[in-house]
Amino acid sequence: MNNKISIHNLCLSIDRQPILKNVSLNIPTNKITVILGPSGCGKTTLLKSLNRLTDLIPGVQQSGEIMLDGVNILNGNQDLVDIRQKMGLLAQRPYPLPMNIYKNITYGLRISGRRNRQFLDKRVEHYLKMVNLWDEVKDRLKDPASALSIGQQQRLCLARGLAVDPEIILADEPTSSLDPISSKLIEEKFLELKSQYTIVLVTHILRQAKRMADYVVFMYLGEVIEQGTPDELFNNPQHPVTKSYLSGQFY
């Protein structure tokens, strides 16, 4: 399998409290990698370390390697803007930027200097259609994004992330605040998008993991307990912690 990202011995601590302990894993290209585990096991932190949003945490210390296309992004002399534009982030709850729908989609393009009106118009239409939002908002692109429903906002956030033309989509429990129908839309979109993008999906919903995963990583208390294909991990778990989690003994 071709790996987009490979992580070696990643350790991360906040105020000397270890959050990630010696994490090593591979994220295959153009597949959905699901990071599964109970709340507080470091899934979100792991995801955010991939585009170095962990740099924002006060008192953070990191060591190890995160290789993106063969280059270590934890190395100090990497351009953060470059790294981050390669990855679109979808958070637990949608956070539309405080501006209108049109400007939300074009934000990533505008800040990198693309100002051609026709180019931006085309991009907005393309990406809103891609997330099935175009028909719902095409007549009110100048409305504030906060006026949309939560489900619409989450699709807007996905379109916003896709508009900067990333190679990787990082999704942190992207359906956890959505209604079932919106959740289904997002899941279907992901299955469609994986032919073009490498997707990393963090979730604590076992059924979602089973529906979506091409590759599964199970984490517990900051450590990777087990990783493998869905078939290996769900049907034949090796580690006792994985077994008890899969049998529903804790969430």
Binding site: L56, R93, Y95, R160, G161
Partner: peptide, 15 residues
């Protein structure tokens, strides 16, 4: 101002 909003902006490549 929520941290997540800043994260959203940064992850889109904003300085």
């Amino acid at each position: 101002v929520p941290n997540e909003l800043q994260e959203a902006s940064l992850s889109l490549g904003a300085s």
